[in-house]
């Protein structure tokens, strides 16, 4: 199952709720302001490192780029995908939950 998060973890609780309710083995895609959760050295880094043990975490490349986030600033293990990768993730999951 694919979960998407488009909220900054510093503003909304979408990341927390997703991590609470997503089953281990799920895919999580960070997009829009959600990509800030993928960055190293933030207050949510530890939470994300832990999440990477249970989930495959992706960040949407165009949204990272728009926000000036270089890929070497990302937490190890976070995979970067484009819109085509987003489509593949959605197509390959049985269902999609967008934590709007």
């Amino acid at each position: 199952m694919l979960h998407t998060i488009n909220k900054s973890p510093f503003e909304k609780n979408s990341l927390d709720t997703c991590l609470r309710l997503a089953k281990p083995g799920s895919e999580i895609l960070l997009l829009e302001d959600g990509v800030y959760a993928a960055v190293k050295g933030t207050a949510v880094e530890q939470k994300m490192v832990q999440a990477l043990g249970d989930y495959t975490v992706y960040a949407l490349g165009p949204d990272l780029k728009a926000r000036g986030i270089e890929e070497d600033r990302l937490i190890d293990g976070v995979e970067v995908v484009g819109y085509d990768g987003f489509v593949d993730l959605a197509a390959n999951s049985d269902r999609v939950q967008s934590w709007l």
Partner: peptide
């Protein structure tokens, strides 16, 4: 509980959010 809710979500075909 969170586990029950997680199970329920996994059973759905379509999830709509507001």
């Amino acid at each position: 509980s969170r586990d029950e809710l997680a199970d329920l979500m996994e059973q759905q075909d379509v999830i709509l959010n507001y």
